[in-house]
């Protein structure tokens, strides 16, 4: 399980993460993924870089909790969540949710729920570098 939910500085491979989750069962027939990436604009400003900070231990606990609740509340077989912290360049990966189920609808629903829940409950903060300097982001759409 610890491999399936991680916070790390280094980039991740979507293929590897999907394989890791899919290894849970031969009954998996659908895998939905959500990939969050670093875009170059925010509220009309040009962004040149991002940085993420987390509350160690608590953030990992919240991600593990999201996986547990997803497994309990949706008809999915396995879920993986990886979030990067530290400096992230434009275009790079930030977060990946992988939800695996027998049929597609359950995977789609669990994946959408998990990223929304992550944004709501996980102590991770983003700062954006703009021409005005580095600014902490206080709200996420």
């Amino acid at each position: 399980m610890s491999d399936l939910v991680r916070i790390q500085e280094k980039d991740f491979s979507i293929d590897e993460e999907v394989r890791r989750v899919s290894a849970a069962s031969k009954g998996i027939g659908a895998v939905a993924t959500f990939l969050g990436a670093a875009r170059d604009f925010s509220k009309g400003e040009t962004i040149t870089g991002l940085s993420f900070e987390h509350y160690p231990v608590m953030a990992e606990k919240k991600l593990a909790d999201i996986r547990e609740r997803a497994l309990g509340n949706f008809n999915i077989i396995e879920m993986g969540i990886v979030h990067r912290v530290g400096k992230i360049d434009i275009g790079e990966n930030i977060v990946l949710i992988v939800a695996a189920s027998a049929h597609r609808n359950d995977a789609f629903m669990a994946c959408e729920w998990a990223i929304t829940e992550l944004k709501r409950t996980t102590p991770i903060w983003k700062s954006e570098t703009t021409s005005k300097g580095e600014v902490w982001v206080s709200e996420t759409p």
């Binding site: 987390h54 953030a59 992550l118 996980t122 102590p123 709200e139």
Partner: peptide, 9 residues
């Protein structure tokens, strides 16, 4: 911990 609004994801 004092936790300002989260902005992960």
């Amino acid at each position: 911990g004092f936790l300002p609004p989260f902005s992960g994801g």
